[in-house]
Structures are given as C-alpha cells and as structure tokens.
Simulated scan of single mutants.
Amino acid sequence: MFIAAYVLTGCMHQPEPVVTPIQQLNTERYMGTWYEIVRMPTSFQRDMSHATASYRLNADGTFEVVNRGFNTRKGEWKTAVGKAKPIDGMPAGFSVSFQWPFSGGYYIAELGSNYEYAVIVSDSHDYFWLLAREPRLPRWLIDRTLARAHEWGFDIEQMIETKH
C-alpha cells in the first residue's frame, strides 16, 4: 500500500529497477483497486493494516495513485495521493511522486495473466509489494512470490503479511 508513498527517496532522477519489469502492460486494465498482501517494512506503513492502492488513469497518460490504510496504533485511516508518470521505454515502469520534487520508481515485476495479482518493486531492495484484486491470495501463490523475491535479493524474513 502506500505504494511508493515515500518510496520517494530520490529527487528528480531517472529511477532504475532492482528487477526487470514486465514488457507488456494494459494500463487501463491495471487501473482500479488493489489490496496489499505482502510488503517490506517501511516507516510510512508502520502499524498499517487494511492497506489498498487505487489507480485512476488520467487523460495525459499519467495516473492518480491513492494509497489508504488503517493505522492500528493511532486508530485512524491514513490516505496518500500521488501521481505516476510512465518511464520511456518501460511499459511497466513509472516514476511516482507524492510530494514534489521527490519521486521514486514503481516497477511491475510480475503480473497475473488475469491481472489478479501484481508484484511491485522499486529502486532498491527496501521496497516490495505483492498486491491482489481481492484481500486474500492462495498460500501457494504467496509462498511462490516470496521465493522469487528471495531469488531477486530481497530479505524475505522481513516481509510483512498485511491484515485485512
């Protein structure tokens, strides 16, 4: 969730993925609401449950990003709104900004054939999300995704499964 809300570690730079993104993406089909299933721990998502990311395509080819989650410690909902711009030459690569001039990479590293799940990485091994169209995925798919994340160099021992 808060996909890249503060993944934004760089300032006005051309981001580079830690994993090669997929080569084909139907952006319109990708739009809509996604539930966070697994994530790397981040300071901006501390104590977060019920995390979602919603995407809406803009006429100029960018899309609005709305990340939402429930902070269990504070007992309140948090929302972050940003904008994703396509990266030239990368059909599944975007530069996401929640606060100008900061932006970060958002790369779709894996996508289900029916757009039922997506694996998102960024510019470092500190950011990883498994998203799904439903709040739950089969255990075998979560386990397979974690195994792949390990192969890609992510510390899967740190991964958090999001409560919904």
Rank of each mutant, 00 (worst) to 15 (best):
M1C: 09
A4G: 15
A5W: 09
V7K: 06
T9P: 04
G10A: 12
G10V: 08
G10W: 14
C11L: 15
C11P: 06
M12A: 13
H13N: 11
Q14Y: 13
P15M: 03
P15A: 04
P17W: 12
Q24G: 01
N26C: 11
Y30D: 08
Y30Q: 03
G32C: 11
T33A: 13
T33K: 14
W34D: 07
E36G: 05
M40L: 10
M40N: 03
F44P: 06
D47C: 07
D47A: 09
M48W: 01
S49D: 15
T52N: 10
T52L: 13
A53C: 09
A59R: 08
G61M: 10
R68L: 06
R68E: 11
R68Q: 13
G69T: 07
G69S: 09
N71V: 05
N71R: 01
G75E: 04
K78W: 11
G82A: 08
A84E: 00
P86T: 01
I87D: 06
G89E: 05
M90K: 05
P91N: 06
A92W: 10
S97M: 06
F98C: 10
Y106K: 01
E110N: 08
G112Y: 05
S124E: 01
S124H: 10
H125T: 07
D126T: 05
R136L: 14
L137N: 02
W140L: 08
I142Q: 11
I142G: 09
A147P: 00
A147E: 11
A149K: 11
E151P: 00
E151C: 02
W152I: 07
D155H: 02
D155F: 03
H164M: 05
